[in-house]
Nucleic acid binder design. Sequence first.
DNA 1: AAGCGGCTCAACCGCCTCACG
DNA 2: GCGTGAGGCGGTTGAGCCGCT
Length: 228
Amino acid sequence: MATHSALQTEIQRRGPWLEQEDRQLTMFVTRMGERKWDSIAKASGLERSGKSCRFRWLNYLRPSLKRDRINSEEEEIILKLHKKWGNKWSRIARWLPGRTDNEIKNYWRSHLRKKFPIQLEGSWKNLHCKVKHGKPEKLSLRHDQNERDVPLYNHFELSNLEITSSPYETRLSNWISNPLMNEKQEVNHHEECNNSEFCFYYPNMNYARRDDQSDHFWDSLTPLWDIE
DNA sequence: AAGCGGCTCAACCGCCTCACG
DNA sequence: GCGTGAGGCGGTTGAGCCGCT
């Protein structure tokens, strides 16, 4: 005898969404908010799973979504962030308003992966950084115990910080929270490393340079640790 | 015109995390 | 502290489309 949940699974629709389903879902999400997807699925009478409803809304029905194709500016951002974070699609998507992680993932697979085949040459393991006096002795970038890459903001061991709201920390906080700026500053720091013991290893810098990297793009860079 | 292969993208799957009881 | 369920996320699949031969 089939269980209740099994029966529920049996009657759940799959495959492409109908216009009527879209209308229904939109109506209920507008009423109930973008939460409790299982409740929305049940309340709306849609024979879909909560997950399926969530996916449809987030990737297709949400009013804030852009409908046009990904432009060159967005492509550039995707490239930059993918260099930095790898396949962290949802994280990348946060920097592209109106784009979904699914869209970016698909775009990467169909366009950029072929264009830029080798993106991850370096390892994130055992990367260390010595920092000037009064600043962290070591910043480490590492994988977690399961060998998965830990989000960038988790890589930094700030326990050595002696002054909690120092200019350095403020700077670091800003730096971490802005991925585009991060790359500029990381790159700059990397280049500084040539003649310095204060080296910040940034594995992704082995990637091919973009044309604008040799021009004004890098001119405005300021080192992370340069604090007035 | 038909067959084939590649591409695109919507949708699903499975695993993980986190909140809550 | 533990179990459970919902939500989030990255990987994968498959249908439909298009261009080439």
